[in-house]
Amino acid sequence: MLSNLRSPYLALPGVHALPSHLPLGELGLLPVNAYLVQGSEPVLVDTGMAIDRGAFEEALWSLVDPRDLRWIVLTHDDRDHAGNLKEVLMAAPNATVIANGLAVSRLGEEWDVPAHRVRTVNPGRTLHLGDRSFTVIRPPSYDSPSTIAVYEHGNRALFSADSFGTVLEDMADNANEVNEQDYLTGMSLFTRANAPWTALADQSKWDSALAEVRGLGPSTVLSSHGPTATGRTQHLLETVRGVPSADPWLPEEDIEVEAVLDRYETQPLPD
């Protein structure tokens, strides 16, 4: 397998992104990020994709000694977020996983995470991890019921899981490197595609979910599926606010079912 992992970059003071991407055909490229938060007790947010196995661990351990990694915040159990969890835990003897309890149960479909190495949390909890403090929230959009996001108070940074993700034509480390219209259009598309239930969302309830993010006042949004976005939170909120009223999105089909049936019905029967 060829890894799509790129070189880590400094997203914020003390925060490194470990960036990769997933091709989505004609739609473009979906960023897939994990983040390492340095501090007295280093925190890894997500563990990347299995296709990046080997390269992901090499990049991670170039930034932190495995024995020093203390926490792994798993935003949810999807393979693009938990793809290297087992390998990281095996290499980092002092690391403990922080996740929603449902995520831990779902991980058990493939691998039982040792119970003594897990702490389960729900939205509303504030965690003091060494010299860093994180508040756990439910992000506005998600594709897994186990999803959590975390707000890091020191940098005023929201690690938003799938929320505020976007599809890009070319990879970029910073949102300022991307045409703004393309960036926001890709965000609307990704949100509708990744969370199709948003087409059924009550607008007032959707607005309440966005208000929780606005109330935290993040200066930077670090999406698992987007470039670093500093000073753009209001634009991001305005973009995704319109998602429930936008047309639902579905991928193109490989065949036109009606045309195939018509051809079948008009073919002469064999003798």
Score class of each variant (00 low, 15 high):
L5I: 03
P8K: 13
P8F: 03
A11Q: 04
G14W: 02
V15A: 11
H16P: 00
P19N: 05
L22F: 09
L22A: 06
P23N: 08
G28E: 12
L29H: 04
P31T: 08
V32Q: 04
L36E: 00
Q38R: 14
Q38F: 03
S40N: 07
S40W: 07
E41S: 13
L44R: 07
V45G: 05
G54C: 09
A59W: 01
L63G: 05
V64D: 00
R67D: 09
D68R: 11
D68Y: 09
R70W: 01
T75G: 14
T75R: 10
H76W: 12
D77H: 12
G83K: 00
G83C: 06
G83Q: 05
E87T: 08
L89N: 00
A91I: 03
A91R: 06
A91F: 05
A91E: 02
N94Q: 10
N94L: 05
I98F: 04
A103L: 08
S105C: 08
G108M: 02
W111P: 01
A115Y: 01
H116E: 15
H116F: 02
R117G: 02
V118R: 00
V118C: 01
V118M: 01
T120D: 03
V121C: 05
N122L: 15
G124E: 08
R125K: 10
T126M: 03
T126Y: 00
H128S: 15
T135Q: 07
S141I: 02
S141W: 15
S146N: 08
I148D: 01
I148T: 09
A149H: 03
A149N: 07
E152I: 08
H153G: 02
A157W: 03
D162T: 04
F164R: 01
F164N: 03
V167I: 15
V167D: 01
L168W: 13
D173C: 12
V178G: 04
E180R: 13
Q181C: 05
D182Q: 12
D182E: 13
L184V: 09
G186K: 13
M187E: 01
S188H: 09
S188Y: 05
L189M: 13
L189P: 00
T191S: 11
R192N: 11
P196R: 01
P196N: 07
Q203P: 04
Q203V: 06
Q203M: 09
Q203E: 12
K205L: 13
W206K: 02
W206H: 11
D207P: 00
L210W: 03
L210D: 09
V213C: 14
R214W: 12
L216R: 12
L216C: 08
V221I: 15
L222Q: 04
L222K: 05
S223T: 10
S223H: 06
A229C: 12
T230Y: 10
R232F: 11
Q234S: 13
L236S: 11
L237D: 09
L237P: 06
T239K: 02
R241G: 05
G242Y: 15
S245D: 14
W249Q: 04
E256S: 11
D262N: 13
Y264A: 15
T266N: 15
Q267W: 14
Q267A: 15
P268Y: 12
L269T: 14
